[in-house]
Every structure is written in C-alpha cells, then in structure tokens.
C-alpha cells in the first residue's frame, strides 16, 4: 500500500542530494526557533503535542480495557454477588472451585478440541482451495468473493441459519440425510451430547474457511512467478511444485493464520451461545460461555473473575509458547537469509 503514498514527495527535496537538502532544512528550522530559551520550550511543546495526540486513545483503553481486566483479577479473590462492598476475601478459593468444576474442566477441553480441530480441518481444506483458486480459471474472481462471504456474516446470523438447517427432522440437513437413506439422530445433531461439539466445529469451519483461503491466496501472490516457470521447464509435476515450492514458501502465512485461529477458538462464544447455549448437558460449554453464565445468570462475580483470569492465562501462555516455538522460526530464517545475502 505504501507505494500509493510515496509519490507526492515534494520536488524540492527529492533528487540526488536529498540528505544535503535535509541538513539545510534542519539548519533553517533551527534558526527559525532560535530565540533564547526556544529549544527548551520546543521540547515542552513537543511533549505536550505527543501527550495530546496519544491521550484520548490511552484514556479509552485504560478505562474500558485495562480497568475491567484489573477488576476481573480483583473480583477473583472475593466472594461477591454484586451488591455491597467487596469484603468477603476468599483468597484462591474461587480459582480452586473453578478449576475443580467439572463443567469448567469440560469447557477447557472443548476449547482445545475447537483449537486443534479448526486447524486440522481448515489448514488442508484452505490450502487445497487456495491452490485451486490460484490457477487461471474461468470465474476465479467470483469464486474468491463467494468463498469469503461466510466470514463477513455475523456469527449470530450464520448461527441462526445453521440452527434452522440443523433442526431435527424438519431441518434441511436431516431431510437430505433421510433422503439418501441415512439415519439422523432423533434428538437432532445439536441436541445429542455426543455430536453437538463436532457439529459446532463443522459450522465454525464453514464460517472461517474463507479467511484461511484469502490469506493463503495473498501469500501465494508473493511466490515469484519465475519459480513456477523454471520448475515447469525442469519437468516438475503440478503436485511436486506445490509440495516443494509453494507450501514451504507459504510457511510464514500459515503460521500466522494458525495463531489467529487459535486465539479466536480460545475465546469462542457467539456461535456456541446461538447454536446450543452450551448444552446439551454442558457438552459444548466453552470458557467464555461458562464465565458469562456465571457472571450474568448467577451473579457469581468472583467465580466469573477467576474464570476470566484463567482464560487469559491460558490464552497468554499459548500465545507466548506459539511465539517462542513456531513464529520464532520465521524471524530466524529471515535473519539467516539476510546474512546469506550480505
């Protein structure tokens, strides 16, 4: 995008001796503000400007992000039902009861199934579709648009449509299955504890596959065309080219996408709330639905606070671990290639 904006560089200083021109400008600027004490008041003025520019954003983040997060930590060590002062200090009791709660343990397990399930399903599918769409074929632009549509829809809207599709017996999915002689579960796909989480995973795959495809396609555009041409001249098959050139070169894109997908799966709320509400029999509860349920319906603010902190710690630990073990490879290879180039 940067190339769109570099053009209007003023003619006065562009050209071969830009540094000299810049020095001259600096001299003139210094002279202009050269009044006694001007330097110090300039420094103060600069500080004031910085503060004025950054303050609104920082204030908003402090009030609506930092303060609530700090409050969650504070609530987590009290037993508090939302009225009266915070005085019933219970130490780590809330953490103990959250961590020993079967429903929360289940929720953590569900989050991890969604984290790994999403990546295992969407990575091969997304790669396959991106490689397919990277060919010169009729209607390619339209295809790219269509595949991205589910991603743009609100999770709630997609969820309501899928809820209708998955209605037991009268829903389209069950009708099609009965039509080809299969037997859908009597309680419906979302009503059967053994199936519900997997169905949620499939709906999420439908919703988010488009993002993977679009990002992979963008990564593919960075693969230099000459590579394909020379590989073709050497007689490599399409599949060989993909496996030994395209996919390795997509590595950084894939790793970053995995990271985004993982963080999203850990925070999963909307789709579950619409499709199952966490049921049946807590078969699809996630950490986020657990803490919202504790905080709103039951007003167990201490428990909700402890669950929030645990959710954050898990997300943070996963993010750091991912950064350390996987994304680090990208910066290391970058450094290595830079050294090789030097």
């Amino acid at each position: 995008m940067a190339h769109e904006v570099t053009d209007p560089a003023p003619a006065a200083v562009s050209g071969h001796d830009a540094p000299a021109a810049r020095r001259a400008i600096a001299r003139r600027a210094a002279r202009r503000s050269g009044a006694p004490g001007g330097r110090r008041s300039d420094a103060w003025r600069k500080r004031l400007e910085i503060a004025l520019f950054v303050a609104p954003a920082l204030a908003l983040i402090a009030l609506f992000v930092a303060w609530p997060v700090a409050s969650a930590v504070r609530f987590s060590v009290y037993r508090w039902k939302g009225f009266g002062p915070l005085e019933d200090f219970v130490g780590f009791d809330n953490y103990v009861s959250v961590l020993t709660d079967d429903v929360f343990q289940g929720a953590v397990g569900h989050n991890f199934i969604i984290v790994f399930g999403s990546i295992l399903l969407q990575l091969p599918l997304g790669l396959g579709i991106a490689l397919l769409l990277n060919r010169d074929m009729w209607g390619r632009g339209l295809l790219r648009t269509i595949i991205f549509v589910p991603y743009v829809l609100a999770e709630v809207i997609a969820g309501v449509v899928w809820f209708q599709l998955l209605q037991p017996q009268y829903g389209m999915v069950d009708a099609i299955m009965s039509g080809i002689g299969l037997d859908p579960p009597a309680q419906g796909w979302l009503g059967t504890p053994d199936h519900a989480l997997w169905v949620v995973l499939l709906v999420l795959t439908w919703k988010y596959l488009g993002l993977a495809v679009i990002l992979f396609l963008a990564g593919l555009q960075g693969v230099p065309e000459e590579l394909y041409e020379s590989a073709q001249l050497d007689g490599a098959s399409w599949w060989q080219v993909q496996r030994s050139i395209t996919i390795p070169l997509l590595g950084p894109t894939i790793r970053t996408w995995c990271f985004l997908s993982m963080i999203g799966s850990l925070q999963l709320f909307d789709m579950v709330w619409i499709l199952t509400g966490g049921g049946p029999a807590n078969a699809t509860t996630t950490m986020a639905t657990f803490l919202v349920n504790q905080g709103t319906d039951r007003q167990n603010y201490g428990i909700a606070g402890a669950a929030s902190v645990i959710l954050f710690v898990i997300s943070f630990a996963m993010a750091v671990a991912y950064q350390f073990f996987i994304l680090r490879r990208d910066t290391m290879t970058e450094r290595r290639t830079r050294k090789a180039a030097a």
């Binding site: 609506f64 992000v65 709103t296 603010y301 606070g305 929030s308 959710l311 954050f312």
Partner: peptide
C-alpha cells in the same frame, strides 16, 4: 486482552 476476559467487569462498570 480479548473482550471475553473483561466482559463481566465491563458490564458492571
């Protein structure tokens, strides 16, 4: 910091 972490205190605030 995902919104889910801060949601309950945010609601109270």
């Amino acid at each position: 910091f995902p919104a889910a972490v801060a949601i309950i205190p945010l609601f109270i605030l």
